[in-house]
Structure formats: C-alpha cells, structure tokens
Write a protein that binds this DNA or RNA. Structure first.
Lengths: 371, 371
DNA sequence: TTGAAAGCGCTAACAA
DNA sequence: TTGTTAGCGCTTTCAA
C-alpha cells in the first residue's frame, strides 16, 4: 500500500530519453492530450495542440516506438522475406519496399532465406518475436508450411504468384505471359525458329510459371522446342553458365535462348564469350527481370522487365490495407503486376537468316561503337 | 481505489499472444521465476527451471521483444548505415552483418543513405525512434554532424576509417596499403611503369586513403603517375565508364589502371571492350573489393580483396562490446581489417614487353579456353 | 474537450 | 530461492 521509496532504475548509462511527461509538463497539459495531439485525434483544442507541437519542437521529442507498440499491439514493422540478398534483383526490391514503407511510417525486417529451410525458420521466428504487423513473402514460390505460423496468428501476408488461400493473405499476380510473349514474338519476328529456355529451380512456383508461359507462347506460333533445349538452372550466374554449357552440348543447339532471370542470362553470356561465340550473331539471348546490370553487360541484354517498384508497392499496399483496415469486407486479394520486353543488343537474326523473307536487313555491327 | 471493471482491450483482432503469465500458470510458478529462467539467472532452482522450460516448450511461448526492450532499455537492434544497397558490395556486407547479429540475438535496421543528406537524416531519425543499441556507420567516410545525435545520446557507433573520437566510438582501420601495395608491385613485376588510378568520390575519406595508398606505393618503387592518369570516379559502374573514357582521352595513356572499387573496374572493362581494346593485352586492370561478380566479368578481374565478413564481424564486435560491457575500462577502439590481392586474368604484361629482362614469358591466350 | 488512471508484457528491486 | 509489485512510456477508457 504505502509507496516505498526505491532507487529509480536507470536502464543504460545516461541514456534517458525525453518522454511524454516532459512534453506534457512543458506544454502545461496532461500526457493524454500530448498523446492525442501526436496521434491527431480531432477533438483536441487548436490552442492546446499548438502548445503541444511547440513543446515537441522545442524539446526535440519523439515517441518511444516500443512503448507505442506494446500498448497498441502494432509494431509498425513489416517482415520482408527474400531468397538471397546477393542476387541483385533483391536489393532493388528491398530499396523500393523500404522507400514506400518508411514513407508510410513502417520499418522493415529483412529475412534472407538462401533457399534453406532452417534459415527460413529462423527468419520466421525473428519476425514473430519482433511482432511484425505483416509479412511480404518475396521468395517467389517456396511456400513453406512454416508460414502457417503467421496465418495462425492472424498476421497478414502477401505472396508472389501463390500462397495459401486465406482472408488475410493476398497475392501479387505477375503476368509473366505478357513480357514472355513479347520476347518470344520478338525472336520469331527476327526469324528464329529454334528457341531454348533456361529455367530457374523448378520447385519454385514462379519458375514453373515462367517456363510454362514460354512454352505456351511458343506453341501459339507453332514452335515446339526440343527437350534438350529446355534446361534447368538455379537463377544464379554460375547456374546459368552450367545450364548454357549443357545446352551447347546438345547435337544441335537453338539459335536463341530465353532465360528465367538476368543472372542466368549473364552466366550464359559468359560461357558463350568463353567459347568464342558472338552474341547476338551466333546466338540470341533474352533475360528476365531487367536488373540494373543488364544494361551494362556485353552485349547489353535484351530482357523482360519486371518492375521492382511495382512489385514493392503492390506488396506494401496489400499488407497495409490488411493491417490498417482489418475489417474492410472486400479487400482486393490479387494485385496484378505486369512484365514487358526491353530490347537491347543481345538479340538479332539467327545465323544465316540476315536476309530473309524478302526484307533487306542490316547486319549488326560486331562491336558497339563507342560514344 | 476500487477496481472498476473495464472491457479488456484487445489490440488487433484475435492477435492475442501468449504471455509470461500463461507460462507461469502452466508451470505453477510466479512470473518472476519464468523471467529469471528465460534470462538464465543462476539462482533459479533446477527443478522449477525444468518445469518452466517444459511449459515454454509446450505452449510454444516466446517473449515479447517490445516489452523487454521497454523495461530493459535495450532494443537489441543495431543500425546499419550504408551508402547504397544496389552497390553489390553492400548486400554482401549486410549478409555478413546480419548473420553474426542474428546469431547473437540482435536484429538490424538498415538505412541506405544514397549519399544524400536528407536521406541520411531520415535514417538517423528512424534509428533513434526505434532505439537502436548501436550504429555501424559503413558509409566509408561521410561523417555527418548529424551523427552527433547518436553521440549525444550515448549510443555507441563504429566507423570505417574514421569517425569522431569519443569513448563510445570505435573505428575499423582498414589497411588499404597492404593490398594496394601488392597490386602495384604485381603490376610493376609484370613490367608496367605507367600506372593510372580511378578513384572514388574524393570527399569520402576512404577514397582519399585508397588513392593516397596507391600514390605512396607507386612512389616506393620510384613510379610517379601523370596527373592525367589520376581520374575521379564515383564508385558506380557508369562512373567507371566515364572515368575510363577520360583516361583514354589523354595523349598517352597508362598501361595499367587500378580502380578504387570493382564496380568502377567493371565500368572500365566495358569501355575498353566497346573500344575494341583487349584486357589484359592492351591494358591491365585491377579492381578493389573483390565482389562476387568480379570473378565473372570478362576477363575475370584481378582485384584487391577487402573481406565483407571481416568488416561485418569487426563492426559487430565493436558495437557489442560497447553495448554489453559499457563500463569496461579499456575497450579496443580500433579494429584492424586487412586487404590482399587476388590475381585473376585482367592483368598481364604491358603491350610489347612480353619478352623482357631476359626472362622468357608466355603470351596469354586471347580467349580463355573453354573447360 | 480534458485529465486521471488502467494497463500493454516484461524486468528487477525488494520482501519473505 | 521465490513471489509480489513498481514501473518502462505510451494509448485509451472513463469520468468530469
């Protein structure tokens, strides 16, 4: 009952921050009013609000996020689960996500799974412990049962291409077909009839979709790639090299190869260059993603662009609407993201077809002229 | 006085997590004992501890980080301030830092400044708001007065190459000279006398140091590069291209060029390839960093390796010792990080010197043979 | 419209 | 060795 005098706890040496009481005192109002002002509750008197803001300004106060999170049950933290931070696609995605998240008052917790179950588990645990308000699963199709942990706690998620159906889960639906069709038709228009495809790891849903889109788009125009021209890579540069070597080992090889991502394409380019083959004269290559680097390889890569900014924005918005309007009846649960071809210099006529179907065609220069 | 019955607040629909009380109840002990058990306070009875762990296991309980942070004053969050997440050097650094941080119970908050003062300010504010326990400033020498915000709050910091002197600040001291000397002497041993250098942005301390090390190492062996051979880049691929073009515009150009980072070197390689010049036959190139990509450009890049893992580990340890042993009298405040040359295929004899000083030398193949 | 006060889940001081 | 309890800084209910 009686207030026993205790020595006040000082958590870490001298690290005492200003708190809401200091502001309240300075502005001669109650802490409740300060809280309401900060949270822009409309019923606060103009005059008082002004005093509060002035005090905040003068003291350079900002609220303690942990306390806020503790009491409100919202951490303003979003988990961002990616495959591999060293794949250049992801930093670009992170950048986009971070930008929009920060602008809207969220912080992000990045988890890099490296396609490893145990790491995935650690990432999920970290996110659970930090109480993320939502999770963007940008691993492109490794949907683990592990993710049930989020679902069972009613933590919203957003997936790419897939994801368990649930009221709190949305999906970014990437229209691979659009860009891939442009790519296939671009090759066909150049005269290619022998197309190959280096896929990503086929246990990933997204990689299956890309490959299927490629095959369908070929079929649409009556093309049927040989089995030996369909090789599985792993979305790394090294994997791309290995895959291209396998492709070239076939008795006949295609005159154009589409790759499931740009790193794969860059690996393919390396192998061709090592073997003394010229791109696009001897073989055309198309990538996928349009990472920054794509423009700077030799030759600059023709590729299907999937915008990181679009992806990041859609993922963020999907999560935000679930978090902030949890009882909205009809939230969109599918967010479309499109893809489109960017033509650069890794594609041209197939060998020996530079004058075909009556059109006079200009042969490309071997070396790009220096500007 | 009287306990008024209130409707218990339910923060977010159904998101009720288990708390320490549930565990206490389940294990038939007090919450204090649960807390002590979790925090491994040695005075807990073995028997009780066992019961507590069992309860934790059975309930799949884990503590609420925000509550812990609030009461302990420690967020177990470290800020990681980098320049540009899309520069491949940084994801590799982040990966290393994240790995060691997570293993030790810390989470990281990444701030990408993009060399922009305003963004830097935002990053600092975010870190302050989230109450980071320490900050690793890996921007390589943009020390802003803004960082005073941390110092004035007694938040430990670690810098690369520099940083304001203070008891809570440590510095990673990179021995640029070691690797750069190896590079310069490697070139000299091959017969090069005309060396150029493409620096990074010279307002960065780290870039000044690299350039100075290069010049000193040249001087050591009696070499003095022409002014026209010392060009400033900006550590991007595009910047490297521009810089190399400027270098080639000089009346005479050097026979070997060292670059302040690998992206710059890769840009330089591009330009040379566009101009039809062969590396290393016409010009040798050395990079700096040894990013993953360095091995995969054409030709594979000879470069000075600065280990991201070493850097990350040193930064983490520096912060951790300040955070966890704040009153340790003699903490190391300088952590050495070394660099060393990795020889690949972008360096060779200067043109026309392939048979020199009596040694018979093998001319390199133009194309690397395919394996 | 405002203020007092009850917690959010936890740690740690103190009492037993 | 264990339990009781006062806060950590904030939001929000309730009463005024």
């Amino acid at each position: 009952m009686s207030a026993v005098k205790r020595k006040p706890r000082q958590p870490v040496a001298g690290r005492k921050r200003l708190d809401i009481r200091d502001v309240a005192h300075h502005a001669r109002v109650s802490i409740a009013t300060v809280s309401r002002t900060i949270n822009r509750v409309p019923t606060v008197d103009q005059e008082l609000a002004k005093r509060v803001w002035k005090a905040i300004e003068e003291l350079n106060y900002f609220p303690n996020t942990q306390a806020r999170a503790l009491v409100s049950g919202r951490s303003h933290l979003m988990g961002l689960l990616i495959s591999e931070i060293t794949n250049p696609f992801f930093p670009e995605l992170i950048q986009g996500f971070e930008e929009i998240a920060v602008k809207n008052g969220y912080e992000i917790l990045i988890g890099s799974t490296s396609y490893d179950l145990e790491r995935m588990d650690t990432c999920i645990r970290r996110m659970l412990e930090r109480n993320v308000d939502g999770v963007a699963v940008m691993t492109f199709g490794i949907e683990e049962p592990l993710l049930e942990e989020f679902a069972s706690r009613n933590i919203p998620m957003v997936f790419v291409d897939s994801g368990p159906p649930s009221p709190l889960v949305s999906a970014l639906v990437v229209n691979y077909r659009h860009g891939i069709r442009e790519g296939v038709q671009h090759l066909a228009a150049l005269g290619h009839r022998h197309l190959g495809f280096i896929s990503g790891p086929l246990q990933q849903r997204s990689c299956q979709l890309r490959k299927a889109a490629f095959l369908d788009c070929c079929a649409e125009i009556g093309l049927k790639p040989l089995d030996a021209w369909l090789v599985e890579g792993d979305h790394t540069l090294e994997g791309g090299m290995r895959a291209m070597e396998r492709l070239l080992a076939a008795k006949e090889h295609p005159t154009a190869v589409m790759c499931s991502n740009d790193m794969t394409a860059i690996g393919a380019l390396r192998v061709l260059s090592h073997k003394g083959m010229n791109v696009p004269e001897d073989l055309s290559i198309i990538g996928f993603d349009d990472i920054h680097l794509a423009e700077f390889v030799h030759p600059p890569l023709t590729t299907v662009r999937m915008s990181r900014t679009d992806l990041a924005r859609a993922a963020f918005e999907a999560l935000r609407s679930h978090i902030e309007k949890p009882d909205q009846p009809a939230l969109p649960s599918r967010y479309p993201v499109t893809t489109r071809l960017t033509v650069r210099q890794s594609t041209s006529y197939p060998p020996g077809v530079s004058i075909s179907n009556g059109k006079r065609t200009v042969t490309r220069k071997r070396k790009t002229a220096a500007k």
